[in-house]
Amino acid sequence: MGGFEDREKAFEAKYARDEEVAFRVTARRNRLLGQWAAAQMKLTPEETEAYAKSVVQADFEEAGDEDVVRKLVGDLTAAGIAIDESTVRVAIEEMAAEARRQFMEAK
């Protein structure tokens, strides 16, 4: 029975590690999205840092990416930049790939 319990603990540990990696990659992706949007809005470096943090925080409002999409589309539109959800979703995919790449390089 000890072997089964060991396997169960190993699976639980792997699941916890996988969830932590996913969380870190998503947070990095959101930071990159914030930097991308800040560049579109021509924010200063200080404003860019604060904005990137606000995008990371926005992702905690609800499950999924809809909260981030709404924030980015709303903020960019308010800044006078013509943008639609599909453009933001493409940026999300690009930044997700970049975040995964950065995470793997950092290991």
Rank of each mutant, 00 (worst) to 15 (best):
Gly2Gln: 09
Gly3Met: 13
Gly3Tyr: 13
Gly3Ser: 15
Glu5Lys: 08
Arg7Leu: 15
Glu8Met: 11
Lys9Arg: 14
Lys9Val: 02
Ala10Pro: 02
Ala10Thr: 10
Phe11Leu: 15
Glu12Met: 10
Glu12Gly: 08
Glu12Gln: 13
Glu12Asp: 10
Lys14Cys: 07
Lys14Leu: 14
Lys14Gly: 06
Tyr15Gly: 10
Tyr15Pro: 01
Arg17Val: 13
Asp18Trp: 05
Glu19Ser: 13
Glu19Phe: 13
Glu19Met: 15
Glu20Thr: 15
Glu20Tyr: 15
Arg24Tyr: 09
Arg24Leu: 15
Arg24Asp: 14
Arg24Ile: 12
Val25Asp: 07
Val25Thr: 11
Thr26Met: 12
Ala27Trp: 03
Ala27Phe: 05
Arg28Thr: 09
Arg29Gln: 10
Arg31Val: 02
Leu32Trp: 02
Gly34Ile: 00
Gly34Phe: 00
Gln35Gly: 06
Gln35Arg: 10
Gln35Phe: 00
Trp36Arg: 01
Trp36Asn: 01
Ala37Trp: 01
Ala37His: 01
Ala38Lys: 00
Gln40Val: 00
Met41Gly: 00
Lys42Pro: 01
Lys42Gly: 05
Leu43Thr: 05
Thr44Trp: 01
Pro45Gly: 04
Pro45Asn: 05
Glu46Gly: 04
Glu46Pro: 00
Thr48Met: 08
Thr48Glu: 11
Thr48Ile: 05
Ala50Met: 09
Ala50Gly: 03
Lys53Leu: 13
Lys53Trp: 13
Ser54Pro: 05
Ser54His: 11
Val56Met: 09
Val56Phe: 06
Val56Pro: 03
Gln57Gly: 03
Gln57Leu: 11
Ala58Glu: 06
Asp59Val: 08
Phe60Gly: 07
Phe60Ile: 04
Glu61Leu: 12
Glu61Cys: 04
Glu61Ser: 12
Glu62Lys: 14
Ala63Pro: 01
Asp65Ser: 06
Glu66Thr: 09
Asp67Ala: 14
Val68Trp: 01
Val68Gly: 01
Val68Asn: 01
Val69Tyr: 02
Val69Ser: 02
Val69Glu: 01
Val69Asn: 02
Val69Cys: 04
Lys71Pro: 01
Lys71Thr: 04
Lys71Trp: 03
Leu72Gln: 01
Gly74Ala: 07
Asp75Phe: 02
Asp75Gln: 05
Asp75Ala: 03
Asp75Thr: 04
Thr77Pro: 05
Thr77Asn: 09
Ala78Pro: 03
Ala79Arg: 06
Ala79Thr: 08
Ala79Gly: 05
Ala79His: 07
Gly80Phe: 04
Gly80Leu: 08
Ile81His: 06
Ile81Val: 15
Ala82Tyr: 05
Ala82Asn: 09
Ile83Thr: 12
Ile83Arg: 06
Ser86Asn: 15
Thr87Val: 10
Thr87Met: 10
Thr87Ile: 07
Val88His: 02
Ala91Ser: 12
Glu94Arg: 15
Met95Pro: 00
Met95Glu: 08
Ala96His: 14
Ala97Trp: 06
Ala97Met: 12
Ala97Thr: 13
Glu98Gly: 03
Glu98Arg: 13
Ala99Arg: 06
Arg100Gly: 07
Arg100His: 11
Arg101Met: 07
Gln102Phe: 03
Gln102Lys: 13
Gln102Met: 10
Glu105Cys: 03
Ala106Cys: 09
Ala106Gln: 15
Lys107Asn: 12
Lys107Pro: 03
